[in-house]
Design a protein around this nucleic acid. Sequence first.
DNA 1: AGATATTATTTGATATATCAAACATTATTA
DNA 2: TAATAATGTTTGATATATCAAATAATATCT
Lengths: 151, 151
Amino acid sequence: MSNKMNFNTPTSTVLYSIEETIKAYRKLSQHNISNVVPNITVDQALILIIIEREDKTQSEIADLVFKDYASMTRIVQLMINKNYLLKNIDDTDKRRTNIKITKYGKEIIEKLDPIIKKNREMALKTLSDKELEQLFKILNKITQNCKIIQQ
Amino acid sequence: MSNKMNFNTPTSTVLYSIEETIKAYRKLSQHNISNVVPNITVDQALILIIIEREDKTQSEIADLVFKDYASMTRIVQLMINKNYLLKNIDDTDKRRTNIKITKYGKEIIEKLDPIIKKNREMALKTLSDKELEQLFKILNKITQNCKIIQQ
DNA sequence: AGATATTATTTGATATATCAAACATTATTA
DNA sequence: TAATAATGTTTGATATATCAAATAATATCT
């Protein structure tokens, strides 16, 4: 890589570069996940693992994984159909839905955990700890910049 | 940010962090683009601008914007419906389709150019040149790591 | 040349993203 | 308390992602 880079062509914007990375990562992840659990998507796998850790309502989970509530409704429905999740109306507030993982869902998580770990290791194996911290810091800056006009 | 970060929870993976950033960026971009050109998506805007610079076939453009060929077929069709693009079968190889921008499409590009520039500036305004280079370098490393098993 | 392989694109099926509107429930206010 | 506002979720409509299979055109091989 040269010292002076040109960031002024459409194919050199951050959006472009980040998109390239995330698509490559998703492809790798989906590939490895499908080897142990066919028929689960990367999104569903992440959601399953997050729900296991956090006992929250549907929209709280949606916020955690950056999903629109409408998307969340549909993803949860698909995961119920596959017997990974259960959903019941909250007793104290009937607008809310609580999501639980089924026994089968927990078995799936057992299979997924090492794969998720492996995916991360593969993707990051050539990065130093310093670079990893830089990455998080820079991404966080960009995220904050983008959120200014929104709330 | 503390010196020692914990990268072992699902919500601290790169996939997760990158996803957060790209979604914030997309939201900002879509918001600003919609102010000048209603009814165009971020993807369509990028594709329009890339086609203007590169006179290529549909699948070559798809590769440039990291789109699946199937997605590309559909996006191009929508952009033809909106009178941004024209498509004709290549004379020398009738399997190929050449994509051209209409006059109307070029007018749209005129409106989009400053917005795209502004989006980039907003997203990156707190980043130093050094950080920008670090970001590209790190993202590129991750992308390469993810591509190893694929071809 | 004729059979076969490869390439470029399309179509079908399903998952996800996003906005707007609908809906039921709960909270607030006049 | 009745009317209104706010909240949590769902549904509808449309755009995009992804895989597999289909299709048409071209290239290669015997």
